[in-house]
Design a protein around this nucleic acid. Structure first.
Lengths: 215, 215
DNA sequence: ACCTGAACACCGTTCAAGT
DNA sequence: ACCTGAACACCGTTCAAGT
């Protein structure tokens, strides 16, 4: 595999092997993210990521001691991007109610759009999170967004009292559960088959908010 | 496919030809199920399953053309067992309300108890279900249980009207989402940390039923 | 510090061959 | 029909060595 000569940003006279001059790590995460989105993390290999980046696989191992560490780095960035995406969606809010609605919709939409990357983010394979503190930080930050929006809702008299985390857990479970089931193709069931994802997502989000019981 | 290299735990397993006499297939699923529950499906290998069963790995390939087919068979049995477990739990019901409550509790409890097997059942790796019709049948049957319980609830005036599948989807999303997050160790968050799974499960199930909004 | 090349043990899958 | 043994092309990880 031929390396494409790239201009050295700090001078431009030297042709350098590839992007990697202090940034091979980032390049690997870039290519890894692409690969995950194409094929899903179970079939991702360190060797293929290295190949696509134009380096030997041992070079990749220099930056990521294990395959899991590489996946964790990819997942971490995924959480950061998702957090940014949710924050951006909520900026259009006019009040606590629309904040919650926008957040829920944005969550499911982003999850489904990212698909395999979202699945990696919540995969048990990256779940030895004690070994990957940045991953924990990134996912904690995303959950905090949820809790904040719920707290807002409580203060506006929209959401029941009690610890905000409790209500956040309900909403999160519903949104994550729906996204997971959809991505795992478990929604191909009689009565659900063929219906739009947006319609089903709305039903689930409304259900978590209003409940399925008769008041 | 990428598998973590596993140290050959116990040197040479003795070949016990007596085991398989027309039922090697079943024996492989038995051992495979055990292995999944011990280590999780990502690190399961056809070769190790065969080793534990006392046959060559090519014998396993005779019964399961691919690794995915073996995993699908394991997942199928998992669904059948879970369906039976849910049915059994509901037999203690005294009415539609307790039926729903028992079903929800049993679902989450079974999922958490089976852990890695449940994760396999809902893994995208076995999601090429068109290729594994028994898997589809088994999982459809489990979902049908949910829908039936919801329909019962509607007829008793407990659950809102509309298509029963819609309300079932809400409850399923919440239950599955909570189980998944718990199994993926994503509940180690400020405010949730250290609380009992049973308590959190009850919150989620009640939330799906009654909603988080103020009536 | 950063990357290469060779080596090791393991894997999924295929194929010819035995019973 | 059912299973074995050998072979192939992959893989994650480690190590000595180069720059």
């Amino acid at each position: 595999m031929p390396r494409k000569p790239i201009k050295n940003s700090k001078g431009g006279r030297k042709t350098v092997h590839a992007y990697h001059h202090g940034d091979l790590r980032r390049a690997l995460v870039d290519q890894g993210t692409k690969l995950v989105q194409e094929q899903g993390h179970p079939s991702i290999t360190v060797r293929e990521v290295a190949r696509r980046t134009g380096v030997t696989h041992t070079a990749a191992h220099y930056h990521f001691r294990t395959r899991e560490a590489l996946l964790a780095a990819i997942a971490t960035r995924g959480f950061e991007e998702m957090t940014a995406s949710l924050e951006s969606a909520m900026r259009a809010a006019t009040g606590a109610r629309s904040r919650l609605a926008l957040l829920g919709e944005a969550y499911v939409r982003h999850a489904l759009r990212r698909g395999r990357l979202y699945q990696l983010m919540f995969s048990a394979e990256t779940a030895t999170r004690d070994a990957h503190p940045e991953l924990r930080v990134a996912s904690d930050r995303m959950f905090a967004l949820l809790v904040d929006a719920i707290r807002d809702g409580q203060e506006t008299g929209l959401v029941r009292g009690g610890p905000p985390v409790d209500a956040a857990l309900v909403a999160w479970s519903a949104a994550h559960g729906f996204a997971s089931l959809s991505l795992e193709r478990r929604l191909m069931l009689p009565g659900l088959q063929g219906r739009e994802n947006d319609e089903l997502a709305a039903i689930v989000l409304r259900g978590a908010f209003e409940g399925i019981a008769i008041a």
